[in-house]
């Protein structure tokens, strides 16, 4: 999203809702959360989910497929704040430098 001055609404007016999605805040990230499946309670039995609850950017994805649990981050929006790592009761999330 790198539009010219004449391709955007006048004076920064937001003319339609939902466009915060277009703002990929992942570019702000200095530290990246790295997840370990082995000790994660969501992967083990589909419980806990504290990281998902606390993530301020909806960047944690808890996925259930055919009775199996998967875990991933949406790095387009994860700002690397580290709240998920801080909340994780089993220490399954580590913050690593980008």
């Amino acid at each position: 999203m790198s539009k010219r001055f004449d391709e955007i609404p006048m004076a920064g007016i937001i003319i339609e809702p939902g466009n915060a999605m277009e703002y990929k805040t992942g570019g702000w990230r200095a530290m990246r959360p790295v997840h370990t499946d082995e000790t994660c309670l969501w992967i083990k039995n589909g419980t806990c989910g504290l990281c998902w609850i606390y993530c301020p950017d909806n960047a944690v994805r808890l996925i259930e497929e055919n009775g199996k649990y998967r875990y991933e981050y949406d790095y387009d929006y994860c700002k690397g704040c580290g709240i998920c790592a801080n909340q994780c009761p089993t220490g399954s999330i580590k913050m690593e430098s980008e």
Partner: peptide
């Protein structure tokens, strides 16, 4: 509805 004067 529109939003005027937002963040840029």
């Amino acid at each position: 509805p529109v939003t005027m004067g937002p963040l840029a």
